[in-house]
Design a protein around this nucleic acid. Structure first.
Length: 168
DNA sequence: AAAGTGATCATG
DNA sequence: ATGATCACTTTG
């Protein structure tokens, strides 16, 4: 049986598939706990992936991606939306899984709004304010499709089927 | 279809 | 210091 940490040790495209159906547990400062089952993910796979933020190497922003599996990577997109990613794979190898949807929130910006996640969680380890529960379940079917919103990437990388969605 | 929104990064 | 670029959402 896989523990959550073992899942995140996988290469991002595999981790992204296995994370579908798992439960995110958000503990708010006031003590309330929110749970959300993951329904949609995308993998960003190292410096060679021209869609990955780290494709141009280490910068202040991408530094988090080089940290160990289980590190939380959060950044602001379009000035409005926080994007939640979980770092996977070996340390020093920048890979992450973007959480694009959970039950009750479809779209990465809505996920962080629902779970009240912002920059303050960036570069912190999973297990505290945000954790993966052990009691997720495998969905009936997981579909793979091309990633969205990466028109700046090489055609070959746009074609990769690294977006995963739960299909019931 | 298109604006809104601000951190980040590459230039100068 | 300035400008371009966004792993998006909402509104019309």
């Amino acid at each position: 049986m896989d523990t959550p940490m073992n899942i995140l040790d996988l290469p991002a495209p595999e981790a992204a598939r296995v994370l579908i159906g798992k439960i995110l547990v958000r503990r708010l400062p006031d003590g309330t706990v929110l749970r959300a089952r993951i329904t949609e993910t995308e993998a960003y796979f190292g410096e060679a992936d021209t869609a990955c933020h780290a494709c141009h190497g280490r910068t202040k922003r991408t530094e988090t991606l080089y940290h160990p599996a289980g590190t939380i990577y959060v950044y602001l997109c379009y000035g409005i939306h926080w994007m939640l990613n979980l770092v996977t794979g070996p340390a020093e190898d920048p890979q992450a899984v973007l959480i694009r949807g959970v039950e009750g929130a479809s779209g990465p910006g809505r996920v962080t709004k629902l779970l009240q996640i912002d920059k303050s969680l960036n570069d912190t380890p999973l297990g505290g304010a945000l954790a993966l529960a052990d009691d997720g379940f495998v969905p009936e079917r997981v579909e793979a499709s091309p990633r969205v919103g990466i028109g700046y990437a090489a055609r070959s990388d746009q074609a990769r089927l690294w977006r995963f969605t739960a299909a019931e």
